[in-house]
Design a protein around this nucleic acid. Structure first.
Lengths: 334, 334
DNA sequence: GGACCGGAGACAAACGTTTGCCGATGGTTG
DNA sequence: CAACCATCGGCAAACGTTTGTCTCCGGTCC
């Protein structure tokens, strides 16, 4: 492990000053082409690679971007991780993945630690409250996913639209009374979906029973399933696939046939939605595209030559029908 | 976004030289306690935080560690990611996650790019061949998972031992002829499992049919399942859970009852193994612990006060029995 | 022939930190 | 009282890069 060559070595080898060597390698046209060639050749021969640290110190930019997720093991984030990673790599940025442990404190600790280290961050499903989130958004460049912040660019996945589509699907199968097993009150998606369901229900002539909030974890599906069974409905829309998995578990445990006696719809189409039996009908979210778009917005914002201005990208969803939804059972009219 | 305070500001505020301020904050005892207190107070008041970049340039260490995985969306790596992330965070290191896209070129590109940026790396399931891997291991500190490298520390998950256990489980259920749907030839785990199976088969009086290699993806399970059915066996050990998922898919498609007509055993116990129906009997690998141990070894190696020497940690596995294995069907003796 | 100009290279400062070394101060010891 | 030593603070170099500014040189224009 010998000391890697520096610009100084390149300069010495090609008989020019360090500044000239620097410009020869980074500012095309600034130095005589013959000299530049000489420098480049020396650099090649020595195997010179610029030191990111030196660069960062001088330029104030590290060419690193962080992705903050509340829980790396939640399959919801896989697509996002993949999307941001691909986009960042394309621009030669280093991808820093941070797990905020589902905790506000850990998330703020991470942001504090990262601020001087990264040029910007993508926040996927931040657990911060609105005020703190907005405060942080002034601290350094960030882009949020599924979480609008005033005067900041962001990516929104239109699961609300998909929810309307899912309700229509259920209505077309004859369901007349449907439960919504909702997510956390703080969730922006949840609020929007409730609103959409209310109007769509009216339009479709379907009754929607709102249940929850439930924590979107598989373990919490049991409580949700019990509430659903108690609500006298023939179908349930779950806040997300994890909750739907839990609901399926519990329904099987209680001997309720899916979709014969109860139809179940998830949301996101995460890894595993096609593993369960019956396969889970779900609202597919283009998560990889969302990650990609978020990174895209962030990189645009980091580019000093870029015009600026905030942009909100809204991505459409679509319903994937698998085995967990079917025609409504005949109900005994009392 | 105002310029963050530097050591220079702290020094000015407390009326000492920069060097004194630096020592007051990082070298306990080196400066007079009263002065040190004054400096610390000034730092606190200004909200001073040392610049990682400045530190890195001066010390040559970035306090960043990379985790290289072939594919971030493979659930196998979730546990590892989580384990390394937790361990690194505990020591205040920044966690850089890199997806090598299942390609040797991308992996080498990533290593080259990362070498000057991170202090070391954890390689989980590297796709590099032995020579290149060893060459890289001389270039900068690294720890491998499930991939022994000469003179380097590493973590091994004893799936081979688990495989023996799984075979015993099948034998106890009356299976006498079992298939092994193997993984890539390059896989160290695969080679070891084949060896273990050979001796265990002899001991248990079970015949093992070796099939494959198969690419450990769900899509490739179909080919594996067909080969298994053709091999006239009553049970199959799959290289990993993803392949097992695919095998289950295909068996269902072909109307083969699991576990009535065929028992299936996976490996790793990834997310989803308890979602499929029947639940997948599998060899549970302590992946989070593996990630933790790998990060642990790397940090020890990075610590200059540490004695040094290479260590190999071997982690045990255990069999998780779910619904996909059952008693062997009665075979018609021909 | 002098003024002007542009090209091309070099000098040096700046980014923020750590650390080797020196000097000053004050106290202890012989 | 001199010699020595420990304590504590400061100066300055070093890490590797970028970039503002200066100089030198040759050419062009009037």
């Amino acid at each position: 492990m010998t000391r890697p060559p520096t610009l100084r070595d390149v300069a010495a080898a090609s008989g020019v000053a360090i500044s000239t060597a620097s410009r020869a390698l980074t500012k095309p046209g600034r130095v005589n082409e013959r000299t530049a060639t000489r420098v480049r050749e020396a650099a090649r021969q020595l195997g010179y690679a610029p030191s990111p640290t030196g660069r960062a110190l001088s330029s104030g930019r590290t060419r690193m971007v962080a992705l903050l997720v509340p829980d790396v093991t939640n399959p919801y984030f896989f697509g996002i991780v993949r999307g941001t990673a691909a986009r960042l790599r394309a621009d030669g940025y280093v991808h820093v993945l941070v797990d905020a442990e589902e905790s506000v404190e850990a998330e703020e600790r991470a942001l504090r630690a990262l601020r001087p280290t990264v040029d910007g961050a993508v926040l996927a499903a931040s657990r911060l409250d609105d005020d703190r989130l907005e405060a942080w958004s002034h601290e350094f460049p960030m882009v949020t996913v599924n979480r609008p912040v005033p005067d900041q660019s962001g990516v929104l996945v239109d699961t609300a639209g998909g929810t309307g589509q899912a309700l229509a699907h259920l209505a077309s199968l004859g369901h007349r009374r449907v439960a919504y097993a909702g997510g956390p009150r703080a969730s922006w998606s949840d609020r929007r979906r409730r609103a959409v369901l209310r109007t769509a229900a009216k339009r479709l002539g379907v009754e929607v029973v709102f249940l929850g909030p439930f924590v979107p974890r598989r373990e919490d599906g049991a409580a949700a399933a019990d509430a659903v069974l108690h609500a006298d409905v023939t179908a349930v829309l779950a806040f997300d696939d994890l909750l739907a998995f839990g609901i399926l578990d519990r329904l099987a445990e209680r001997g309720v046939d899916v979709p014969g006696a109860m139809s179940v719809v998830g949301c996101d189409d995460v890894f595993g939605a096609d593993l369960v039996r019956p396969g889970l009908t779900t609202i597919a979210a283009p998560l990889e595209r969302a990650g990609h778009a978020a990174a895209d917005l962030l990189l645009a914002r980091l580019d000093p030559t870029h015009p600026g201005g905030t942009v909100t990208v809204e991505l459409p969803t679509h319903l994937v029908v698998r085995g967990s939804t079917g025609t409504a059972p005949l109900r005994v009219v009392t």
